[in-house]
Amino acid sequence: MSKSSPRRPFGGKSTGTVTVIEARVHRSWARNARMAFVLTAVIAGLLAAVVAASYMHPILALFVGVGVGVPLGGIVWVLVRIWPVIRLLWWWTPEIGLAGLLLVGWVQLASHTPTLVTLLVVALVVGVPAAVPVIRHQIMAWAWCLVVRHRLRVCFAQFIIANQSGSLPLILWATPTPVGERVWVYLRPGLSVKDLEARLDKIAVTCHASTVLIERASDGNAAYVRFDIKRREVLTANVGSPLVDVIDPDTPTVEQAPQEVPTALDLPDVQAPTITLPKQGGTTDRKPAATSTANGSKPAASSSTAEDDVSDWI
């Protein structure tokens, strides 16, 4: 919707994209605004006139209706006309808020404290998070969350435009995960998880990430999806098993039964026709019928033995 009019001042980053999209877009912002003005003015004016008619002469009421409808339509016209600006401001609300907070904080600090104290406070506020790794990583992780929401929007605006008006999915909140970020998105008509899965590699590149996975975030609503953006491998350290701690270290060791140790351990020791697979020592003894010819290399001889076994067990 934002890619329609070449006259509009905001709402797109590159004019090249605007030209490409424009052909597919039916209504321009100006037409949308005009339509909104007419609709609002007519509906509000008629309503106002009907209400006013019960108090005064109908012709006077009509003038009242015009007086109410036109200003209201004007307000709506302005809102629709500057919608790209509002949207842009909404997208950058966290950044604008943070920047404002920092600016106000800095001005207040500078105007109420001597220079030395100001510098000291700034050094503490900047230095402590920079020096403590845990805080630094947390701040970086949240900063990436802000970045990744914008990058995802770039993805949708640049190469995942699915419907005719070019409306973008609603990019909801993002949280840091140990491997990267997780972003929840509400898809607009024209997109599906399958469409997005075909472009996982491009999304990963745009997000400066390693891989991206997309999952449905809701069982009942296919539009509600979750992006798992992965930018680092965390499963590199060894993981121990808690079973090691439940055993008694003073356990008496098992006395191993003396096993037949094979001797032919090198190639020259083994002649070609006499290769035999190592036999089982202790286990096969428990099954008396199988011990005599239990060897995988002589299948013809052992199959009859196996049949005997079945009759033994049954």
Partner: peptide, 19 residues
Amino acid sequence: AFIGPDITAALDVLRRLQL
């Protein structure tokens, strides 16, 4: 049961399990 490279013993133990 611990079965090594011995398919006859493996078949035996699987038949026992089936039973």
